[in-house]
Design a protein around this nucleic acid. Structure first.
Length: 174
DNA sequence: TCTCCGATTCACT
DNA sequence: GTGAATCGGAGAA
């Protein structure tokens, strides 16, 4: 079943692990559809979290994070890769989950490249979208946490927060 | 305007 | 392990 607003309207530290095992569905304009189980997520939490883009406040770039839960936040990194994030919590509480891996794609840049996700999805809704949504098939599995990747610039304590979540055992097929 | 640099990936040494 | 590719946002000038 397709996940709706209520699922995303919770704190990012609850939502990020909850998203593990859910199914990311991408429907291409030609009708082809891909389903991938989410295997890695990462939490970015509010204006205090110096690793979170929203710690700089509301700017043209970070505005989606201040929008309704379920809003998709897309940004370009290193001039070549689009990052896919799902906004959560309530309006004006900027939190988002970065989808770092799904199915056989084990990196956020590889994932969006394979799914052909770009900034045209920015600010659209993950539960009112014709081409991208998330489903629950009642799968659940154990997970483990790690510090977040690539945010050394944020300094402590943010570097050490165990806000990266990965499924322990999973099958790519389902 | 101009400069710096990033929530990455891949090819090389 | 090191460095290149590549570009727009944020902040300084």
């Amino acid at each position: 079943m397709k996940l709706g607003y209520d699922f995303f309207a919770s704190d990012v530290l609850i939502l990020a692990p909850e998203l593990l095992g859910k199914i990311l569905v991408r429907k291409f304009p030609d009708g082809n559809t891909i389903r991938l189980r989410i295997i890695e997520t990462e939490a970015y939490r509010g204006t205090d979290d110096l690793a979170c883009h929203a710690s700089k406040g509301k700017t043209p770039r970070t505005e989606p994070m201040f929008m309704e839960a379920g809003t998709i936040y897309i940004y370009l990194i290193y001039g070549m890769y689009w990052m896919l994030n799902i906004v959560c919590s309530e309006i004006d509480n900027p939190q988002a989950v970065l989808i770092r891996g799904a199915g056989k794609y084990n990196g956020p840049g590889k994932l969006t490249k394979a799914l052909r996700i770009d900034k045209t999805f920015n600010k659209t809704s993950i539960f009112e979208n014709e081409f991208l949504w998330i489903e629950d098939d009642d799968f659940s599995g154990e997970y483990f946490t790690s510090p977040r990747v690539g945010i050394d610039y944020a300094g402590e304590p943010w570097i050490s927060m165990p806000w990266n979540f990965k499924l322990k055992n999973f099958k790519i097929d389902f």
